[in-house]
């Protein structure tokens, strides 16, 4: 993506900065693995047969596509008053650039070391790039790319979700 050269200084400083490091809040567990395999009728034996898992994946793992599952907060938690907002850098950018509307145009997940039961995963958000102003059929605004990196308790990268967003103003 072409880089913008006309950004406010505080927005430029956001590029490459590590933001919103947080933990998933509960250890990875097999109940959700089996719920997911049941919901999708996924018979892959690495999730159902411990002997196969031992042979192929060095023990049980979670399906790679469950990466973000370990980060969705409980529907309710004692004492919690604020709603948990996912991908906060995206909302920070809308505000900092004064762009009231935004859509996600695509989402890429890159998988690293497998996620295993009892892992404690942490995530962090990094703004990678912002485009010059562009006009699409939605309006005029900018594209940006935000990476969400996921690491396990040993600091090993288990995956990266990369989101392309377009923040814009509707045509007057």
């Amino acid at each position: 993506m072409t880089e913008a050269t006309d950004l406010p200084r505080e927005v430029e400083a956001m590029i490459g900065a590590v933001k919103y490091e947080e933990s998933g809040g509960f250890p990875v567990e097999r109940g959700y693995v089996w719920n997911t395999c049941a919901a999708t009728e996924n018979a892959n034996p690495i999730f159902w047969d411990d002997a196969v898992a031992a042979e192929i994946t060095d023990g049980p793992i979670a399906p790679p596509t469950m990466l973000s599952v370990w980060f969705r907060p409980h529907h309710w938690a004692p004492g919690r008053t604020e709603e948990h907002l996912p991908l906060r850098v995206h909302f920070d950018l809308k505000e900092a650039l004064g762009l009231p509307e935004a859509v996600m145009t695509d989402n890429t997940i890159t998988f690293g070391e497998p996620v295993r039961p009892s892992d404690e995963i942490t995530s962090r958000q990094i703004l990678r790039s912002i485009s010059p102003e562009k006009t699409t059929k939605l309006g005029t605004g900018r594209f940006w790319v935000i990476d969400v990196e996921y690491h396990n308790q040993d600091g090993v990268l288990v995956g990266v979700e990369s989101y392309t967003g377009f923040g814009y103003r509707r045509p007057a």
């Binding site: 892959n44 890159t110 998988f111």
Partner: peptide, 21 residues
């Protein structure tokens, strides 16, 4: 998760997802 099932039904259990867009 459905896309994962679709692909690994074909590859078998040693198929390992690297990237999805």
């Amino acid at each position: 998760a459905w896309f994962e099932r679709f692909v690994t039904d074909w590859t078998g259990p040693r198929g390992r997802l690297g990237r999805m867009k």
